[in-house]
Write a protein that binds this DNA or RNA. Structure first.
Lengths: 133, 133
DNA sequence: TTTATATGTAACTTGCATAGTTACATTATG
DNA sequence: CATAATGTAACTATGCAAGTTACATATAAA
């Protein structure tokens, strides 16, 4: 697997779960289907659980399930749960002493914030359920 | 320096150049001001040169200059020159045998393309010149 | 109550992208 | 010719995410 495949893995898995919301799936099953490792699956799905999108049960007959109806889970929910940085611009700078640099950052930041709001709006309009077809 | 600072370095440098478009700056000067290394500067600015945004001259009294007026250089030009991946979603997959996965990818791709067009449009409306203040 | 089977998670390895560095060839100016 | 700049190859250092191993914990079934 390459980099930044968390979103990919999450959506793929949620897509399958949306088709059969009552069947629990184990991380081993999910990992085999997705061509990765059970621990990686648990790490990614763990974030979705923390966000209230999935539930997990330990032990015999345990596994992972949707925490609510597929129609009630939007793409924006998933993005936020994974804490995906949508843009590659590095925003974690300490304050610069250079006025030019500060001005540039400010401008970029404004544009990015604007675009991000726009994106989240669009992502919120799409549920996992309607993404399967 | 951390990761993905190419855009940051490029904009910062272009900002200064826009203020004094006729003064050539050496990669050593630029590196010192930006707190990095001359070779790194040459690598990043080299991309801007390939894109026709900057020119460079070797030898005594050489250095880097804007290739055209600051008003004619947009944020979109810079983004494209640096080949920045705007979104973190990994799109470089081989075709999947799983229909659910293909459907998810298709949906995401549609949303991303839409957002990206929107972003480029906004970036094209902002020139380096007007970003200084 | 024991056994099998799941998650949760820490600790480590691996792979890859980027920054940083060193060294040197090339080129242009004075 | 000496100086000072870019251009670039080759290497090291760093950081991050995926992948792996190992094991503690929890739960269901035998």
């Amino acid at each position: 697997m390459k980099r930044n495949s968390r979103l990919s893995l999450a959506l793929h898995t949620l897509g399958h779960m949306a088709a059969e919301p009552d069947d629990a799936q184990t991380s081993t099953e999910i990992a085999e289907h997705a061509g990765t490792n059970p621990v990686v699956v648990r790490r990614v799905l763990g974030r979705l659980r923390e966000a209230g999108i999935l539930t997990s049960e330990k032990g015999h007959a345990g596994g992972w399930k949707l925490a609510r109806a597929p129609k009630e889970i939007t793409l924006a929910d998933v993005f936020e749960a994974l804490d995906e940085q949508l843009f590659s611009y590095d925003d974690n700078h300490e304050p610069s002493k250079c006025a030019v640099e500060r001005a540039m950052r400010q401008h970029i930041s404004t544009v990015m914030t604007d675009i991000e709001r726009n994106l989240v709006e669009q992502l919120n309009a799409i549920s996992i359920d309607e993404m399967r077809s």
